[in-house]
Design a binder for these strands. Structure first.
Lengths: 236, 236
DNA sequence: TAGCTTCTCGTCATCTTGACAATAAATAGC
DNA sequence: GCTATTTATTGTCAAGATGACGAGAAGCTA
């Protein structure tokens, strides 16, 4: 096996998305070493000898967010292996999309590096091909909102219909009619489970609180209008 | 880089789907070497030193089908890296889904191995974790028929609405009303482009011939009813 | 020409969506 | 306490899309 075949180093990179201050944010870390020292990059790391990639992604997610990854949404996006994408040699990376509710931790790199939540719409150039990875992962998230209940993964355990609507609006970059949205999500069986509580907003009528239901697929899907796509600016 | 980090061999595996005799078929090859000698497996191979994975997949596809891969649909499914999935060592494989019109070549392995088109519904156990890969790829194809124009990739350059409908029926394992289907696909802008010709079937009224239009997405999508899912039997 | 098959166009009821009116239930200001 | 304001929720209606199915069109065979 190790004869003439190319050996590559395998890494896992994470696109961890959350919503803060009504903006879609991604967790970035500042690289402490070469290459790309001082530049911003997606969190990630090397897989271990006897570790599956899903487990490696879960481990990195826990290390970076300090949370039990098992409660967060995590799924593979795709794999990037263009020769030369890492100047140190042949490095193949498997990208994962993670979605989390607004985390208490804004910054706290497990290493000495600094970390930040960056506005997805304002992310400029990143180390390696991470800008491509980010773009692909965000598009995947936007698309998944249509056919799955992924949006609820952005919300804390108890949330209102408005919270959920804000997820769609922020991730898609659109306005959604609150009444039609309410009808749609409340009418979709298994999406939301009503709790006994209500929440008083600073102003306005109190809203019922819900938790995630068992459904993972949305049928029929909630389609974004084609004209609603907000693109990620690759320049600042 | 090559210090403490795990080195892995990277391979590409292809799930090449087509429709023959009104059945969904996948190209399988018989392994000539250990491990899993004599067992059926997905075609695939090692990436080359300076080759991107997409190019490796394209190359394998050309080698296996003898066709210019650039005319076929090819996209990444996901990456499999469970330790122990290959007894020879740490092998990470990137799976691709390819969709082709009925190929003139039923068998013709580039190596001495034999090859065959196997009924997807009757594929039993395969070498490595290829049964898992096949299952994931087929589900991806089924799902993509809903919101993309992938179905046309199963068809030759000129095809009828019935040909296209048969793709949906075979891949989904359902019956579709010909009249409603006709209305839907002809009414979807950019899906089909009418040609000047017709085709005389053995019996019945001649059908207009179409070619693929420029659209890649289907909006609104053509949703399969949830009860229509045909599962791949993992046993013979 | 009759009979059969498949292709294509139409019809109609039902379901879903988009636009928007109206009511409910809280807070803030007076 | 009363009113204005804000957000949540229910409801209405027309437009769009789908599922079920009728029927004519256009070829073949007998």
């Amino acid at each position: 096996m190790n004869r003439e075949h190319v050996q590559a180093t395998v890494t896992v990179d994470l696109v961890i998305l959350t919503i803060r201050d009504n903006r879609l944010k991604v967790l970035l870390i500042e690289r402490g070493n070469q290459p790309f020292q001082g530049q911003w990059a997606l969190p990630g790391g090397f897989i271990r000898p006897d570790e599956d990639i899903d487990d490696a992604a879960l481990r990195e997610l826990s290390e970076e967010t300090g949370l039990e990854g098992r409660h967060l949404h995590l799924e593979q996006v795709r794999t990037y292996a263009t020769p030369g994408r890492d100047p140190r040699g042949r490095v193949v990376t498997v990208a994962y999309l993670a979605v989390a509710p607004d985390l208490p931790m804004p910054t706290a790199g497990s290493d000495a590096r600094s970390a930040k939540w960056a506005n997805v719409s304002r992310v400029g150039s990143l180390a390696f091909d991470h800008a491509d990875i980010l773009r692909d992962a965000v598009e995947m998230a936007r698309s998944k909102l249509e056919y799955t209940t992924l949006a609820a993964a952005f919300c804390p355990e108890l949330f209102t219909v408005s919270d959920l609507r804000r997820v769609y609006e922020v991730v898609w970059g659109t306005r959604i009619d609150p009444r039609n949205f309410h009808r749609k999500v409340v009418g979709t069986k298994g999406f939301l489970e009503q709790s006994a509580a209500r929440r008083n907003p600073l102003i306005g009528r109190p809203a019922l609180l819900y938790r995630r239901g068992p459904a993972t697929a949305l049928y029929p899907p909630m389609l974004r209008r084609s004209d609603s796509l907000a693109s990620i600016s690759s320049a600042t």
